[in-house]
């Protein structure tokens, strides 16, 4: 079955999604929901996400990719995007996928801020996904704002061919006061929600968590400990691939295939 774009959700909160039906029959294959990262990162991971969805569908899974309200082709302005809304959208997408496939076994894949959304959605709904793949997940919102600030300064310095010191002068010193990052709004609501977010829930939220760490990602041991305790089974994969959000990867159509393999093999092994 080819990829099928669709709109779903409430009439005042229409979400754009793409459903990839299974192209091979496999008993007990799961439904896979993919959680986008934030802003520019969602654009940079677009091809990788699409290729991952196609690989999963060839492995027998039913897959839904979607855009949060205020992002991609979904309704809403960029300034309307906020963390609570992203979680609500994820729950809506989960229900849509469940209704479309009538499957009860789910794997979730969350990249960057999408990892945080997946953790929040799992906690909020008790959906208890069989597998939760967290790829460079945001586990602390304040840290993520600082990362965004650094990336914003570096990107503008490069794009405008200006010294970073010049961009720094025009960028709030405190990450919490950034109103935009990499071409996307950071609304007061989103920033406030990010500052409040730190994953510290040791309750079980998934049967298995697989942490995927890119070479340039650092996750503190204490955060990883909390993550480890949030699932009955935990494993970690350290990717040697070029970082998925680097300029090099983006401009050269680079796909981190080792990570795709890990996720597809992981989903297939449990089928």
């Amino acid at each position: 079955m080819a990829a099928t774009p669709l709109y779903f959700g409430d009439s005042d909160r229409k979400l754009y999604g793409v459903f990839h039906g299974p192209t091979t029959r496999r008993s007990n294959a799961p439904a896979v929901l993919m959680f986008n990262p934030f802003g520019e990162e969602a654009i940079r991971s677009y091809r990788t996400y699409r290729q991952l969805a196609e690989r999963l569908s060839r492995a027998g899974a039913s897959v839904l990719r979607f855009d949060y309200y205020g992002s991609g082709d979904s309704a809403g302005d960029c300034a309307d995007l906020d963390l609570d809304g992203m979680v609500r959208d994820a729950v809506m997408a989960h229900e849509e996928l469940e209704a479309m496939t009538e499957l009860r076994r789910f794997a979730w894949v969350g990249l960057g801020l999408g990892g945080a959304v997946a953790l929040c959605a799992a906690r909020a709904t008790g959906a208890n996904p069989a597998q939760l793949f967290l790829w460079d997940p945001v586990l602390n919102g304040a840290d993520y704002l600082a990362v965004l600030r650094g990336a914003h300064i570096a990107a503008l310095s490069h794009a405008l061919d200006l010294p970073a010191s010049r961009i720094k002068r025009d960028t709030p010193k405190e990450p919490a006061k950034m109103t935009e990052a990499l071409g996307f709004h950071l609304s007061d609501t989103l920033r406030s929600q990010l500052l409040d977010f730190a994953f510290d829930d040791r309750n079980k939220i998934a049967r298995e968590i697989c942490l995927i760490a890119s070479s340039d990602t650092s996750i503190s041991p204490s955060r990883e400990d909390i993550l480890r305790s949030a699932a009955a089974h935990y494993r970690r994969y350290d990717s040697a691939s070029t970082a998925w959000n680097s300029n090099e990867a983006f401009n050269e159509y680079y796909i981190p295939t080792d990570v795709i393999d890990i996720i597809v093999d992981g989903v297939s092994a449990r089928s």
Partner: peptide
């Protein structure tokens, strides 16, 4: 270029 239909920065 390499960006899909939503365009750079949407």
């Amino acid at each position: 270029g390499v960006v899909h239909r939503i365009g750079p920065h949407r």
